[in-house]
Design a protein around this nucleic acid. Structure first.
Lengths: 240, 240
DNA sequence: ACATATAGTGTCATTAGGACACTATATAAA
DNA sequence: TTTATATAGTGTCCTAATGACACTATATGT
């Protein structure tokens, strides 16, 4: 006799399967003082207690309806950061990465403006922005060093063919600032003219008036991303 | 008094967390008779019993040391396909996609040569190669239609800037065959000359002699991928 | 032989982008 | 006030990639 789906689900007990631990983590970057920064939290529990790690944690079946909700909730709770344009990077799962056993993490990555969360981060001791170059030398929890490197690499690729790094800057920024940000991300100088041609072609920014001259030299024009611009890609590579 | 990590792990019981169901699935494509084909398996159990689905299944903590091993094992067991250059596509997780509850799937995708697994697929009734265009109209299990579309889109992007589609062809192939394959993948004609320039520049294939003329017209040169070529990318887009 | 079908090449025009000199406009110092 | 210098921004040439498309090459079939 055929079992119906309703009958199947009624007797079905998920506890019969010991599923792997399921976490979400986020590699969140910003740009400040000419440096790329990455957001870290200190682990307050075993395993890896006391080590710094990418913010994240267990998916909560009650609180989260999806992986996207889970990572937004975890980020918000732990660091105060809201990352509207967060993007899935990769998933890592094996029986080695967590001492508690088979573990899977779905990793997200985003660029955010420092201003959007500075006050929160400044006021708690277990969250901080670390310079990426320094974070590379740290003994991060689990396999988070490798994950962070993968996120950094993705960022580099994005910077080669898009203007995404604008998200890491304040709402208003100048083209020299954006160019410098890109140069840090791709780790090589960009021709000023090439860069500006691409900005013009992309037609994604609007002028918001001259920046008051706080330093020597000609003042630069300030821009902001046009309304409704969420993501955008150039056809060709910068340098490469 | 501080708890040590060893003490923590000793008393730690994973069954206290009800982790989401953890599966791996694969969108496997090939190219045959001028058409893009996708590999499907028929579900033999509830839920979605009797529906066709992307091959995949639960991660087995005993058998699999990692997600990569899990997807290779599942593919092999269910379809006989070995996909050496399989690639992670995306992970999907929410409380809607599986009637059994919160479920996460890590999706992989690959292009394989039909020959490498034809006999297996021919001999079992619950596995088949379906034309992609037809599969689109099917009522696949879970959210597999959306996942399949995402994999198709990734394939299209890859075809625009790489020669990866060569993996979907027999070991020896002609340039007109490869061009046609690319045209199907990106769904638009390619300039013959542009295509051949790129093949030459890439320097990834070697001649293996003239193809015997089975049809009208000048016979074409057969090629194979050079030894050691695994993945390769062009700088610029085809058409776009 | 000649029509036709398919494979493969030659070549020109367009365009993206690197190189780099040039102009523009500010502050600081003489 | 002039001049030095620093930074912003533009003009212009050269090269490389590639789209467009006509051309040559080599097979089959009548």
């Amino acid at each position: 006799m055929q079992e119906t789906e309703a009958e199947f689900l009624k007797k079905y007990d998920r506890r019969e399967y010991l599923a792997p631990l399921m976490t979400v983590d986020a590699a969140i970057f910003t740009f400040h003082g000419g440096k790329l920064l990455v957001l870290l939290t200190e682990r307050c529990e075993h395993p890896e207690k006391g080590k710094w790690a990418l913010p994240g944690g267990f998916v909560d079946e009650e609180k989260d309806a999806s992986l996207e909700e889970a990572i937004q909730r975890k980020l918000q709770e732990k660091t105060g950061v809201k990352a509207p344009y967060i993007e899935q990077l990769i998933s890592v799962g094996n029986n080695q990465r967590d001492a508690r056993g088979w573990s899977v993490t779905v990793v997200y990555t985003a660029l955010v403006a420092l201003q959007s969360c500075q006050s929160f981060v400044d006021n708690v001791s277990d969250v901080r922005w670390e310079m990426y170059e320094e974070a590379l030398k740290m003994d991060l929890a689990f396999d988070h060093i490798e994950i962070m490197k993968a996120a950094r690499e993705r960022l580099k690729q994005k910077a080669l063919y898009s203007m995404v790094p604008a998200y890491a800057l304040p709402e208003e920024f100048t083209l020299p600032e954006l160019q410098h940000c890109l140069e840090v991300l791709i780790d090589k100088p960009i021709q000023k003219k090439s860069f500006r041609r691409r900005v013009e072609q992309a037609d994604l920014m609007e002028e918001v008036g001259l920046r008051s001259a706080d330093k020597k030299g000609r003042p630069s024009m300030a821009y902001r991303l046009k309304e409704g611009v969420k993501d955008f890609t150039f056809i060709r590579n910068l340098d490469a």
